[in-house]
Design a binder for these strands. Structure first.
Lengths: 340, 340
DNA sequence: AGCGCTCAGTAAATCGTTTTAATAAAAAGG
DNA sequence: CCTTTTTATTAAAACGATTTACTGAGCGCT
């Protein structure tokens, strides 16, 4: 407990007094917006040092109208996102975005999936927002638009006119289907979630189109996203009991892939010998499975960086293209599909 | 593009004018700090509705001196934390803390491990901070203390006088050792990281004390935390080649546990038949291993909640106990140690 | 000398709230 | 009926920075 008991905050005025200049000059010295004499600047810096001055960010924000803060949010309901899987996806992006943001002197505030996201937004003043894989009629997205908060979606939003970083779901689907074919699979069902997101639409469309074009059977299993792992396991088990046969499985959601693996193991099937399994999100789950799952490298940290920088542009009123291309996804072939 | 091109922000003054009252009254109506006539309040609420008034948080913060923002940070260097493992730990806490914070109208800003965390803190004005498993001479912690920012550590800080939520590492170590003994193991090395954190100190102390008291051999393998998984794998492999024999392994860090599992499988050992493996952090890794790893349920979301609420108290200058007990850790026995 | 121009610095206005001190009106008390 | 107290409201002063408009001083150039 050294130092004064009550240390009144030291302000720009205190510094100015000590350096025998006006507050305005101190401000200029700090921001560099106007030139100040080298000698004067010297005095100011010394005063700052001696007094231990730290600028009050709030006051600065108030004057400049910027909060130097962006939010990252996912609207997924707690039930869906709370599992380590989806949360992992969001958090992986959040961590990368936070780093990029901090490099630009911007703080990233985390809005995890909560029941009433709008009330949260009401209490926050942010310069912009990133929103991850928005759903149709996403309440959070709607609130942001109504408030005219600059917003960038990661993954296509339902109305394609909103600016977003386009994750190339179709390309991913093609990569995975090509790979399954390369590995000798011809009969592979598609297992996916039933929420109305771009990723689901694209995977379904590509899957159906190619099955038709290439004369292969198409079989889509749609599942609720609550408790995805167990849902996938039981669903697949049931289908197998009913005689469904296949030599591969395309299951984009990693949590579902884990469930699928469990069902397959339970049925005594050999992977990849009998069945090749491929998934999309290359999270911990895919890497940790035995055998490790073939997946797509989404390059999420790069995606997050791009999105954050685009958002910064948008906040500074610089025009940006409405659709920003994400880095090209790459296939990560692993033992769950490689026969040799 | 409906609506006015440039919609000047509507302020409390606009509302006041419209409701034919003074700005102060509007403020009182909003905050409820002073009583305002029911009829007047009615008029004000209507004006707010009609104008679509949204309070300017920054101005409010400036006047009240609160930013309604807390930071969560981990000081781990990028190399250590960037892996999904440690990041998972931080993020799991962050997500839970964000939820608790939002319930209290406080935003949580994320400071991921970056090279120069102090510069980041300089640009932020927060009411308080949570800091996860601080290290000795933690630069971030030092900055926070110098700035007199109310701070709560999650996991004991090096100087025990700082307020913190005490994760009961000793209890965890005892739980795991008891369990290994129950499962018939008597020779189990301890594999841990070499950074100077409370968790490492506690595990080492308990391990040594019990080995001595119970007449068992003690063998500690200390590893750098960079690239923990590979480090653990090669280290264990080497030790086995040199003739180290054991019937169990105590490896708190989950990334290292994964490496250990790989080394054991590589040596053709049966788990849990030949070797029982237990770890501490029950993350995705532990659950996804085959066989799944026995671990400790740290109840991190509860820990985060407790820490966030304590921090809120501290910010409001309410006295809090310097050491806050975390919920009692519970053993999650899984197939990596269960013989039957 | 007079004119224009840059340079450094200052005083004052401003951002949008909350809070304090003052006030008018109404109610209560004698 | 004249005080006191309470109640509801308001005008004005903060909060701590940035920015605008203004002021001299110094300098170069006809």
């Amino acid at each position: 407990m050294s130092g004064p008991i009550t240390s009144r905050k030291v302000t720009v005025t205190d510094v100015a007094r000590r350096a025998k200049v006006s507050p305005g000059t101190v401000s200029n010295a700090l921001s560099g917006k106007r030139h100040v004499n080298a000698e004067t600047r010297q005095r100011i810096e010394q005063a700052i040092e001696e007094l231990g001055y730290v600028p009050n960010l709030t006051a600065r924000q108030m004057r400049t109208g910027r909060s130097n803060t962006i939010a990252i949010a996912s609207s997924m309901s707690v039930g869906v996102a709370a599992g380590p899987s989806k949360l992992g996806f969001l958090m992986e992006i959040a961590a990368a975005a936070a780093i990029t943001a901090l490099e630009r002197n911007t703080a990233l505030i985390l809005i995890p999936p909560i029941d009433n996201p709008q009330s949260a937004l009401d209490q926050l003043s942010v310069d912009g927002a990133l929103i991850v894989e928005p759903e149709r009629d996403d309440p959070m997205l709607e609130t942001l638009i109504r408030r005219r908060v600059p917003t960038i979606c990661i993954g296509a939003p339902p109305e394609m006119t909103l600016p977003h970083v386009a994750l190339e779901y179709s390309a991913m689907a093609n990569l995975l289907i090509d790979h399954l074919l390369d590995c000798g699979s011809r009969h592979f069902p598609l297992i996916l979630g039933q929420s109305d997101r771009q990723t689901n639409r694209d995977f379904r469309a590509v899957y159906l189109a190619r099955a038709k074009a290439e004369g292969r059977p198409a079989h889509i299993i749609e599942l609720p996203e609550q408790n995805a792992e167990a849902a996938a396991e039981t669903a697949l088990r049931q289908q197998m009991e009913q005689g469904l046969s296949f030599d591969g499985i395309l299951v984009p959601v990693d949590a579902m892939a884990t469930g699928v693996m469990r069902a397959l193991r339970g049925a005594g099937l050999n992977i990849p010998g009998d069945v090749r399994v491929v998934t999309r999100y290359d999270g911990l789950r895919a890497r940790q499975e035995t055998p490790a799952l073939t997946a797509i490298d989404l390059q999420l940290d790069e995606v997050a960086r791009i999105a954050t920088e685009a958002l910064a542009q948008m906040i500074e009123q610089v025009a940006i293209p409405p659709i920003i291309k994400a880095p090209t996804p790459r296939l990560l072939a692993r033992r769950s599909s490689l026969l040799s």
